[in-house]
Design a protein around this nucleic acid. Sequence first.
DNA 1: CCTACTTGTTTTTTT
DNA 2: AACAAGTAGG
Length: 755
Amino acid sequence: MSNGLNPAQEKAVSHHEGPLVVVAGPGSGKTRVMTHRIASMVRAGIEPSSILAITFTNKAAEEMLRRTLELLAIPEANDFSGHGFFGSSALGLEDDRPVLRTFHSFCARLLRRHAHRLEPYTSSFSIYDSADQKQVITEVMKEMKLDRTSFPPRATQSTISHWKNQMISPELAAEQAGTFKDRELAKIYARYQELLEEQDAADFDDLLLLVVRLLTEQEDVLLRLQQHFRYVMIDEFQDTNRPQYLIAKLLSGQHRNLCVTGDPDQSIYSWRGASPDNFLRFREDFPEHNVVTLEQNYRSTPQILEVASRLSGTEFGHRELFTENADGSSVRVQLVHDERAEARRIADHVEDWMAEGVSSDEIAVLYRVNSLSRVIEEEFVRRRLKYAVVGGMSFYERKEVKDILAYLRAARSTRDDVALQRIVNTPARGIGKVSLEKFQDDALAHGRTMGEHLRRSDCTDGIRGKARKGLEHLREVIEQLEDRLSGGLADMVEQAIEASGYLAHLEKSEPESWQERERNLQELVAAAAETEEILDQALQQSNAEEGEVPDPLTIFLERIALVSDAESDDQMRGKVSMMTLHAAKGLEFRKVMIAGVEETLIPHSRHGEIEGIDEEKRLLYVGVTRAMEELILTHTSWRRRFQDREPRLPSSFLADLEGTSIEFDRKPGARTSVSENVWDPEPEYHHDSEEDDGLHPGAWVHHELLGRGCVNAVQGYGAARRITVRFENGDERQLVVAYAPLSVISPPDEEWEAC
DNA sequence: CCTACTTGTTTTTTT
DNA sequence: AACAAGTAGG
């Protein structure tokens, strides 16, 4: 093949049969190898639909499918592929395509078909996200009368998740528990799992575990899958956990056509049970395997790789990256006064690069924790720089969106009590804490879930007054929605908003932001309409039998639960990307800035004890190796956290970089220890005049189209920051600061009634 | 017994 | 910001 592949790449691409490990350093063309490998297999006569490729994120799956189809010159099926919410394989029914999915979405789809064979689940099981999990845990702790301070729900949640990822059952956890606390935790775990089963619900970890159970318990299913998927590929193999590896092993146990690709140096998910030890297990389980190592880096300048190599190879043996790329500019480390100065510095760089002709989408700002994005966002908004935050709080995590989705969930499944509990008194309908507890106890006494109980006529026995009326009303709403379940998706969402009286509730309870929230709900309806349209089209094109495909609502909810990286390339175009170091895995940008390279941030003060500090270093390694031509690391002397300003020390990892071609930019008098921890305001900088764009209530502004007006109110921050302006003609308008052509002016001379 | 209001806490990373 | 817990008032 004359595809400009190097010998190692060529070897990986042409290796079709038998187990294969591809160890691929950053920028070594791994995605290229994987897509070319699939294409090469198809050209060699292998049925495309017999190829299963598992990726780490949905975005990677879509990208890889797109590039593979391009190589094979297969047109994409519909016009919606670029839109983001649904990729080109909405249903995965196409016969002429390889199957590219994440572990979780592959498992979810498999379980939709077979979960009824796993007691006590049904095929319309619910998927509980982490907020749902937290609610179940809180419920259990209430039941067990444990207090929140000694058992923080979040920590409990991650302990349970950890057990699950190690495939430790509640019974085993109880056996192994040494301390009182561990025994209590194991009890919480046991009850948690019991509740999930009662509620016909699987959390993210269960999706994997249930598939392991399915494949080991139901031999015919395993056999059929082995016959169907004759070639299996796993990407980002260093970040697979035990159940994931088991699934891969089971699927390829017979044909042994398993190709795994990854890089131990980029292992950054051990806190989630992932382990590069799976490379060792693979070697044992597939002793006849071949190894291909991709070492040449095509992405970065030698300067960037020099820095990267100082951070790599701490644990898994040193592997040198090399490149034939031309020299670039030095990597820079810059110390700034505080987080606001950092944000300004970052924005300065962006403006400089853009002036040089670099496009926004070739620039990325990375950080260790999501909270760092806020200040940077504010600065970008102030300067009208376009940006997109990847991850963070997404649309589907908004309260109002989750509420409406909860109505649909409660109607769809009689056992989804987490959803029911969320909406039982939202909007308020007179069902308070006491009545709710009574209702729950009654349900328990009858051996029913709350959802099942609500649908029985005896459910309000012993409940009187407002609460009884409220419950009856709730039942009517749910029944009304149940009637619509077979209808259109958008119609269902609209009905949920309407029947619940949610809009009136919003206007009453959120006088500040109900307009924006209402818009979000409109957007939800639009998303439902779009999904509906795509599903209709996909269904028409396929010759799927009745019952072979889950209903639209199930697909809609599943997608929302499993696809967090909904940002499509379209939405990223023309914008600077901002994301965590974790989210940056697998991506590349010409210009990369990493903010907050400080002790306790990276390495983070709460890094897992087991994984230790090495994983933090690898995380920085991942960030550094995203850069193609320019890399800037920033750190501050002071940083605000909650209420306080804290003195900051540079990351200890920076010490590892001394002696490289790196350019350290430290002003004289830079802090070297935290002993001098007295807040010193930045001398030459006047925070009030320059950091503030003057848009306070009472300020006067000039709008290019609407003329002069007075600011009434300011809401939100970042891209969502809005102001209410009362214009001289009497109009009152809400404006999005980021987009409105505004300038602050001095108040007019003539009298104008105060606003 | 319910509602609306106040206060404190939460933030590590994600499917 | 969102959520839980606590309190006053109807």
